[in-house]
């Protein structure tokens, strides 16, 4: 593009020079050569208009050809002037002017092509970006097998990719404020990591109410029902046992087992419900790549924002986290599986 500017400057040169009389002895030959060059320039210009990729290059070639034609024509004119041949000089001047015009046109085409090319590049880049986001959205599963090969984030080490930003805070207060600002920024796949449950963080993170109580309740009711059905089936239907003259289905003697099974299944429901809601056990997680993260179970507080978040952007997210004044901020990378 710098060349372009220079070309434009040089393009002004002929206009500054006033046309003079032409006296060349070999006027015909000169004129023919100049015309040929101009024609070549025209051709190149026309060709350049066909494909946007080649357009710029062709146009530049055309401009150069036109320049050369102009120079030839000027030389011819000077020669003609020295020879005193006025008519030839005038013709050569005309040719030079034509060549100049052709060159200017070619240059214009080149600039157009340049603009088009830039636009196309932009479009291609944005398409690639949106494809990348889509492909990431497609595999939202946390199973850890997220391998896709968009090589545009590679930084020397081909097998790593960014996984998350990890910001470290000294106190629960800092953490809560940072969490609130990330919540307000509309992130979704992010988390706070604390050594103990920090109260008020639910609201600071904008978390909905946990559903584990519902799971436990359902399991407890299943336990209660299974106790009743089990006892009725086993002791009253399949093999009735009459003890102490009590009728089949006598309720009071069922109470202890009903209670115990309710409690037992509530306990199992709560345990496995907890595992399910937390997606635990999950022994491998990109966050463990960070060595600083080891203090999250001791006395440090962390916020992580994962690349899977639709709003994640290497620069913007970093800026957002920096605004929350973490005591340390790092981009955690993980190996591509």
């Amino acid at each position: 593009m710098a060349n372009d500017d220079e070309d434009t400057k040089t393009g002004k040169r002929p206009s500054s020079k006033p046309p003079e009389a032409d006296k060349s002895p070999s006027e015909k030959a000169v004129k023919a050569a100049a015309e040929e060059a101009a024609a070549k320039g025209e051709l190149a210009k026309a060709k350049a208009e066909s494909e946007p990729e080649d357009k710029k290059v062709e146009a530049e070639v055309a401009a150069k050809a036109a320049e050369r034609a102009k120079a030839d024509a000027e030389d011819a004119k000077e020669a003609a002037e020295e020879a005193g041949d006025e008519s030839t000089a005038a013709a050569a001047e005309m040719t030079a002017k034509d060549a100049e015009k052709t060159r200017a046109e070619a240059l214009e085409t080149a600039a157009e092509a340049e603009a088009e090319l830039e636009e196309a590049e932009k479009k291609a880049a944005s398409e690639a970006e949106s494809k990348k986001v889509e492909s990431k959205k497609a595999e939202k599963s946390d199973d850890g097998d997220d391998h896709h090969d968009d090589g545009d984030d590679e930084e020397g080490e081909p097998e790593m990719r960014p996984a998350l930003y990890l910001a470290e805070y000294e106190s629960p207060d800092d953490l809560a404020h940072a969490a609130a600002s990330i919540r307000d920024a509309g992130y979704e796949k992010w988390d706070c990591h604390t050594p103990y449950p920090v109260h008020g963080l639910d609201k600071a993170m904008g978390l909905p109410e946990t559903k584990i109580g519902f799971i436990s309740f359902v399991c407890g009711m299943v336990g209660l029902a299974s106790a009743v059905l089990m006892i009725q089936f086993m002791n009253n239907w399949d093999y009735p046992i009459i003890i102490g003259g009590k009728p089949p289905g006598s309720f009071p003697s069922m109470v202890p087992i009903m209670f115990e099974l309710t409690v037992l299944l509530t306990g199992f429901g709560t345990l496995f419900g907890l595992f399910h809601l937390c997606r635990l056990p999950r022994h491998h997680h990109p966050i463990f790549e960070s060595d600083r993260f080891e203090s999250s179970t001791d006395d440090r507080f962390f916020i992580s924002i994962e690349v899977e978040d639709p709003k994640f952007d290497l620069k913007k997210t970093r800026a957002l986290l920096e605004n929350t004044h973490p005591s340390h901020l790092e981009l955690v990378e993980e190996e591509i599986a």
Binding site: D191, H193, T194, L207, C278, S296
Partner: peptide, 12 residues
């Protein structure tokens, strides 16, 4: 079990 002190986990 891969516990990472996540507050989303702490909540549950």
């Amino acid at each position: 079990l891969g516990w990472r002190g996540s507050h989303r986990h702490w909540q549950h």
